[in-house]
């Protein structure tokens, strides 16, 4: 393993992204990724863990998120201050382009990071709640498979939602 292991006596793991970039993360960060925790427990985490579904751009963000959460939770600050700190961090962390948000959501699901999955789903939900149907179709690449008559009927049935 890398020399930092011997120096700090902290276990580190290597994560390899889809595009081949290798990230070194400490155990406290790695175990927040549920899939990786399982691999570590099963002693299958050597020499590195390949994450085929996550690009280096997204993996860097995911690691930043997990690192901040791991540090805040073990920092010895009171629960209230830690909560406030995480809230502020999460808010700033979610202030990214919506395509990045979609990819983060997908990565959080794949890596099984419950808090990040919840955060990205909620952020995406509040982002789209006031959007028009056409905007939402475009954002999620959904094809409109209603005929004109069908769409009119559905719109009429749920007219209360368009008020």
């Amino acid at each position: 393993m890398s020399s930092s292991t011997e120096l700090t006596e902290k276990k580190v793991f290597l994560l390899k992204s889809l595009d081949g970039v290798i990230f070194e993360v400490e155990e406290s960060v790695a175990v927040q990724l549920e899939v990786i925790r399982e691999l570590i427990e099963g002693d299958c985490a050597r020499p590195f863990i390949s994450l085929y579904n996550v690009t280096s751009e997204i993996l860097a963000l995911v690691i930043e998120y997990c690192k901040h959460h791991a540090e805040t939770c073990s920092g010895g600050t009171s629960a209230t201050i830690a909560d406030e700190d995480l809230k502020t961090f999460d808010n700033e962390f979610m202030n990214v382009d919506e395509n990045i948000l979609l990819e983060l959501c997908s990565a959080a699901d794949y890596l099984d990071i419950k808090s990040l999955f919840e955060l990205t789903c909620r952020t995406l939900a509040s982002l789209i709640k006031d959007r028009t149907i056409i905007e939402v179709r475009k954002m999620f690449n959904v094809e409109n498979d209603f005929s004109v008559v069908e769409e009119k009927a559905v719109r009429k049935e749920f007219a209360w939602a368009f008020k």
Partner: peptide, 9 residues
């Protein structure tokens, strides 16, 4: 929003 998005597809 859910009522509205029933018209998406």
């Amino acid at each position: 929003s859910l009522g509205k998005f029933k018209c998406v597809s």
